[in-house]
Computed example of a mutant assay.
Amino acid sequence: MTYPIITLTLNPAVDKSTTVDYFVAEQKLRCSTPRYDAGGGGLNVSKALKRLGGRSLAFFSSGGPSGQLLQDLLKKEGIDFRIIATQEWTRENFIVTETRTNAQYRFGLPGPTLTAAEADALLTALRELPARPEYVVASGSLPPGLPDDFYGRIAREVRSLGARFILDTSGEPLRLAANEGVYLLKPNLGELSKLAGVEKLEADDVDDAAKAIIARGDCEVVVVSLGPSGALYVTKDQCEHVPAPMVKKLSTVGAGDSMVAGMTWALSQGKTFGEMVRLGVACGSAATMNPGTELFKKADVDRLLDWINQYGSRYQSLPSQLE
Results as ranks from 00 to 15, higher is better:
residue 316 Q to V: 11
residue 274 G to Q: 03
residue 278 R to K: 12
residue 268 S to Y: 09
residue 267 L to G: 00
residue 279 L to K: 08
residue 264 T to G: 10
residue 282 A to S: 04
residue 264 T to C: 13
residue 285 S to E: 06
residue 270 G to T: 01
residue 236 K to C: 13
residue 263 M to L: 10
residue 323 E to W: 13
residue 238 Q to H: 11
residue 319 P to V: 09
residue 266 A to P: 05
residue 314 R to M: 10
residue 319 P to K: 13
residue 255 A to I: 05
residue 287 A to N: 10
residue 237 D to E: 09
residue 237 D to R: 09
residue 281 V to M: 00
residue 234 V to T: 05
residue 291 P to R: 05
residue 306 D to M: 12
residue 232 L to Y: 06
residue 277 V to W: 06
residue 255 A to Y: 06
residue 270 G to Q: 02
residue 305 L to P: 03
residue 227 G to H: 02
residue 318 L to A: 13
residue 298 K to V: 11
residue 273 F to R: 13
residue 317 S to R: 15
residue 270 G to F: 06
residue 302 D to H: 05
residue 239 C to M: 14
residue 263 M to P: 03
residue 284 G to A: 05
residue 319 P to D: 03
residue 244 A to G: 14
residue 289 M to H: 13
residue 271 K to D: 12
residue 318 L to W: 09
residue 228 P to Q: 14
residue 227 G to V: 10
residue 227 G to E: 10
residue 276 M to L: 08
residue 248 K to M: 12
residue 286 A to S: 09
residue 292 G to D: 07
residue 298 K to A: 12
residue 258 S to R: 03
residue 254 G to F: 00
residue 286 A to R: 08
residue 276 M to D: 08
residue 288 T to Q: 09
residue 230 G to R: 01
residue 267 L to T: 01
residue 271 K to Q: 15
residue 237 D to Q: 08
residue 296 F to S: 05
residue 232 L to R: 02
residue 282 A to W: 05
residue 307 W to S: 07
residue 279 L to D: 08
residue 247 V to F: 09
residue 282 A to V: 08
residue 267 L to P: 00
residue 287 A to T: 11
residue 264 T to S: 14
residue 291 P to A: 06
residue 258 S to H: 04
residue 316 Q to N: 13
residue 239 C to T: 13
residue 249 K to Q: 15
residue 310 Q to T: 15
residue 309 N to M: 07
residue 321 Q to N: 15
residue 241 H to G: 11
residue 260 V to P: 02
residue 271 K to C: 12
residue 241 H to R: 07
residue 235 T to L: 07
residue 261 A to R: 03
residue 252 T to R: 14
residue 247 V to N: 11
residue 251 S to M: 01
residue 247 V to L: 09
residue 323 E to Y: 14
residue 302 D to S: 08
residue 275 E to C: 06
residue 253 V to R: 03
residue 275 E to N: 06
residue 229 S to W: 08
residue 232 L to A: 01
residue 288 T to P: 01
residue 297 K to C: 10
residue 272 T to G: 03
residue 261 A to G: 01
residue 238 Q to L: 15
residue 267 L to E: 09
residue 270 G to R: 06
residue 230 G to F: 05
residue 248 K to P: 14
residue 238 Q to S: 09
residue 295 L to V: 07
residue 244 A to I: 13
residue 255 A to N: 00
residue 273 F to G: 15
residue 256 G to S: 09
residue 278 R to Y: 14
residue 315 Y to G: 02
residue 279 L to F: 13
residue 285 S to V: 10
residue 305 L to Y: 09
residue 250 L to E: 01
residue 315 Y to N: 10
residue 309 N to P: 03
residue 238 Q to Y: 15
residue 247 V to T: 10
residue 261 A to M: 03
residue 278 R to E: 09
residue 311 Y to M: 12
residue 254 G to M: 05
residue 309 N to D: 10
residue 229 S to N: 11
residue 253 V to I: 07
residue 312 G to W: 00
residue 249 K to F: 09
residue 244 A to D: 07
residue 239 C to H: 14
residue 226 L to F: 00
residue 315 Y to W: 11
residue 275 E to M: 03
residue 248 K to F: 12
residue 309 N to H: 13
residue 230 G to K: 04
residue 319 P to G: 07
residue 263 M to S: 02
residue 290 N to E: 07
residue 283 C to F: 01
